[in-house]
Design a protein around this nucleic acid. Sequence first.
DNA 1: ATACTATTTCTACAATATTCGAAATATGCG
DNA 2: CGCATATTTCGAATATTGTAGAAATAGTAT
Lengths: 105, 105
Amino acid sequence: MKIDDAAARLEALGNPTRLKIYRTLVRAGHAGLPVGRLQERLKIPASTLSHHIKSLLAVGLISQVREGTTLLCHAEFDTMRGLVDFLVAECCTEDAQCQGARTAA
Amino acid sequence: MKIDDAAARLEALGNPTRLKIYRTLVRAGHAGLPVGRLQERLKIPASTLSHHIKSLLAVGLISQVREGTTLLCHAEFDTMRGLVDFLVAECCTEDAQCQGARTAA
DNA sequence: ATACTATTTCTACAATATTCGAAATATGCG
DNA sequence: CGCATATTTCGAATATTGTAGAAATAGTAT
């Protein structure tokens, strides 16, 4: 993952409202959750919610599938995994006597 | 980790300049790196660098120790680990047939 | 004290983000 | 078609962030 992509994803997760949206979707797992259900649970005005969802979509952290009249949102677990890998990668590569921080991976 | 703390840390890492600073420190490992060395490597004006370092300090992602006339910066690996754990935690807790995304942890 | 290096604080400005109501669009149904 | 529901786009106000030059502070040595 390029550093600018990683930064964009981290920034997307760095807003409390968006992080709550994302976490709710992560908890929902592969089943996903419609936008409307997210709105009920999080009590966010529809336009605000839509705006944040768009940000998460733009960086590939979530995806959407239309299911009739509703839009199902899913967390993109591969993207999350890639981001986590990026964070723990290259740990201590310049530190000869580094022993264990890399176990975070 | 509370969600607002996680968001604050993710936001701190969500700026490309700050992420570069952080990664450089992660690579430097436990040995750390003085502010001045960071400035040389990243070619960032001192005031801008100082500003970003303060952000990373504020959320506990890095720490500083004075070493004579220079300030040594270190990545706080425990904080990073906590953040990574937060990201992969509670994956699919509402999805009965979730099978593997949690292996990201 | 003076000088020198390292780093931060001050200050200001442009750019971007967040929020949300109102209006617009999309889908499905009778 | 016409209506109901789901969701997005528009528009605009307000707040926050990123950037960096100039000035200030901190530490060390002479």
